[in-house]
Design a binder for these strands. Sequence first.
DNA 1: GTCTATAGCCTGATAGAC
DNA 2: GTCTATCAGGCTATAGAC
Lengths: 212, 212
Amino acid sequence: MAVGSRRELRRNQTIDEILTIAVDVMAEVGVAGLSLSEVARRLGIRPPSLYKYFPSRLALFDRLFQLGHQQHLNDFRAGAEAAEPGLPALLSALQASGRWAMANQPLAQLLFWRPVPGFEPSAEAFAPSQAMVEDVRRMLGDAVERGQLAPGAATEEGVAVLSVLVTGMLSQQLANAPRESFDQGRFTRLGPQIFAMFRDRYPPTEDPHGDS
Amino acid sequence: MAVGSRRELRRNQTIDEILTIAVDVMAEVGVAGLSLSEVARRLGIRPPSLYKYFPSRLALFDRLFQLGHQQHLNDFRAGAEAAEPGLPALLSALQASGRWAMANQPLAQLLFWRPVPGFEPSAEAFAPSQAMVEDVRRMLGDAVERGQLAPGAATEEGVAVLSVLVTGMLSQQLANAPRESFDQGRFTRLGPQIFAMFRDRYPPTEDPHGDS
DNA sequence: GTCTATAGCCTGATAGAC
DNA sequence: GTCTATCAGGCTATAGAC
């Protein structure tokens, strides 16, 4: 592999620069408006040189898709670590996820809305997304075990319902008031209420472990 | 105005054709991929001729935006008429709204996600959307009056929460499984559960009118 | 890995004849 | 209202020199 060679290092730095610039461009002209020429222009090279790093425009999108999901997953997991296991961890993780989405809107649009004609993410780029779904499911299971939610929460349906609530909040905020902050947003600020609705849909039975 | 002249009539027919074709094109190449040239090609005229009907590409999008919201509102209201006033009417209307979105995905994306770089809908094109929000609010008020929901439902918050639930369901379905039907969709089929969550968030007090 | 050069397309939009 | 002609520019992608 020789991953650590100076040449490899430099190459990876360039790739990172390309990705950063691409995100900037999407923020300015819209996700679907991303062009390789504009990226090259800002990087100070000629468009053909980009093809040494990405074989096509759609390949760049694939990498951006993967990058976005990876960042999203990282923030989600950091959020989970920042609170008590079980329901608090899940709530904290989802908050972190929402903050990431508002702070990285072009990537969030790419991940959640698929606005690029002809682009279908590769299985590889999709992997972090699946990992997150599994995380959510596991955390729901934790919450059930701790008697914080009814067993129905840790099912396909529970995961789907939760995803509807979270993406609904974010979609409305991103589409209607993208410049409001996560905390002040007219939709995202409803997070606690929305999450309470989820909890109330799967109310825990009392004293499940006899350890209260 | 002379709205009924034969010339006006023919012109409006052509405009309708253009809009229909534009929707077809968006369905094939993505909303942001719509081009005037392709529309002209399918209509059997040259691109410059289109400018007699729409002064620019963005003007076409504006008209499509308005058309979509108008259709959506029509279906929503027809749904409302098809059930008892109050909560049933609202549920029926929202179901009709969801069906319209799944059956008109390119327009739905244009309305709900704003995927076209540089396009901001005009106030005029936005009017039907505001009308629908007012309808929802009025119907929530009806439901409260009838003792089917708590008063909190007919507030800014109630409208926002409901919009989060509905658009969340549709966003997830459109982005992740656009070819599933409204009734079978892994997300849209959760409609009754989701709606029940809304109702349970604003539970009615008992016997509000003494007429039970 | 970078460049020049270029192919080969596409687009939105305008001018002006008919 | 339709056309031809055209502007003026964009883009992805490839070939091949250095």
